[in-house]
Design a protein around this nucleic acid. Structure first.
Lengths: 256, 256
DNA sequence: CGGGGATTTGACACATATCAAGAGCGGTGG
DNA sequence: CCACCGCTCTTGATATGTGTCAAATCCCCG
């Protein structure tokens, strides 16, 4: 019925030059044919502008598991749209402590933290082999000046990122460990569902430690909670594979 | 030497019509003469565009202590720039729990969380009598389409909000109570300094409970930490008045 | 197929929350 | 102008959720 969420390259990429076989290569994009078009930046863009948008998408870039798409401090010039794969973003403070700020899947945008002062503020690391679309920000801005719908949508995307962050602040500031993990699982479920995967059956790409960092918990706490949720019949866990058995039950955990 | 940070109306407002004496009134703005111009949205805008910008600033609005500038769910049409006073922003989750997402002073922008889906995502409440400039977002967008510098600056401001939020996520996710409060005080100090107030001597407008909400702590913990910092000679506290005695000492608390 | 990181689980420590009581302060109305 | 009331703050005693440390197992990746 549902495919278990897994990493597959989507077949929109059409290389122009075979010599450009490095990490980044120019290519003809086909946003209109991309199965992520309803989730990605061109979402809702009238057909007449779609072709123009495809010229903004400058290149694709392949990032292998463990590799970094951009580092904090790198010069900013583009934002990235995830075409396939799964990444985390992190920030590091003066003392070297790392905080995971998000996990990102197909159709989601990365790098918007770099617009502010011309350098990325955080890091983006692939948790599995990824393919991302490179969107040079100056081209996006130019496009936005010409097409109000594009401009508005860019603002919408930036604003939603702010709203997303406020949700995480709520989670970190006001919820107990159990609620945080339930919220996390439900959030993943929702996002997988939007991409056509099973709402209840998925493979976690991140470690317990990364989940813990994201949720403001230690990895042992995350592990114990997974076990507890399993004992309570809410989920089944086996290493990185999770099956949610009781979505209403997880919802019920929040707010008690 | 320094004025202790206090709420003063800045004198740029020139009412056009005296009958428009309600909470909101149109007025001739004078951004170029505003002492917040270097911190506010028109920051860095070339002089030639300043006058045009002043036409985007649609009105001023007065918000009394305790009143709400906007509620979560209200229809979005404008962002707001704080002209004077001090506000908090909050979000409320399904169970009615409130999380303070920020404290905002002169020159800072509010309401950018509303662009995403046409409704404000959070609340903005005045912690003392405030005056805000109303910036209709559609006018800002129009202006941005015509003036790339304006467009870019709007993006910069949105991006910085994201970066700010990531800093708070770091704070909530990775720091201990003591570090959080030290970071909070140093952040306030920096922002007061940028506005010409004393870096070390200021009046807190928010309650211990609001500080606690912002920092993910309970009010008793905040109170105890204030006492502890005082015992350690780092600060002097008397209710809402704070005097920082040892800024390096506070910095030193972070990362131990 | 081997090795090392990832995960689980237990025992215990400790930071922060909770509950409670009293004091301080400010704003309001007499 | 003063006194009272209510909210805010402080502080103590205690509870508890989560962290820390440790060890064994798992299993995934190279």
């Amino acid at each position: 019925m549902y495919a278990v969420a897994s990493s597959r390259l989507h077949p929109q990429m059409i290389p122009i030059k075979s010599e450009a076989s490095g990490a980044t290569r120019k290519f003809e994009v086909n946003c209109s044919g991309c199965n992520l078009r309803e989730l990605c930046l061109p979402q809702g863009l009238p057909a007449e502008h779609m072709q123009r948008f495809e010229n903004v998408v400058y290149a694709s870039r392949r990032v292998r598991r463990g590799e970094t798409l951009f580092h904090a401090g790198d010069e900013f010039s583009s934002i990235y749209a995830v075409r396939s794969g799964f990444l985390k973003t992190t920030v590091i403070d003066g003392d070297g402590r790392e905080q995971v700020t998000g996990f990102h899947m197909g159709g989601e945008l990365l790098g918007m933290d770099g617009i502010g002062d011309g350098r990325y503020n955080g890091n983006a690391v692939a948790l599995e082999d990824c393919e991302v679309c490179v969107l040079p920000f100056s081209l996006l801005e130019e496009f936005g000046r010409e097409v109000p719908a594009m401009q508005r949508h860019l603002h919408v995307v930036l604003s939603r990122e702010i709203v997303r962050d406020h949700g995480i602040m709520m989670l970190l500031g006001s919820m107990r460990a159990e609620e945080r993990l339930a919220a996390f699982l439900l959030n993943l479920s929702r996002r997988f569902t939007a991409r056509g995967y099973s709402p209840s059956d998925f493979h976690l790409r991140m470690t317990r430690e990364e989940i813990g960092s994201y949720l403001g918990l230690k990895l042992e706490t995350v592990s114990r909670l997974f076990s507890k949720f399993q004992d309570d019949g809410l989920i089944e866990v086996q290493q990185k594979h999770v099956r949610i058995r009781d979505i209403p039950g997880l919802h019920g955990l929040m707010g008690n």
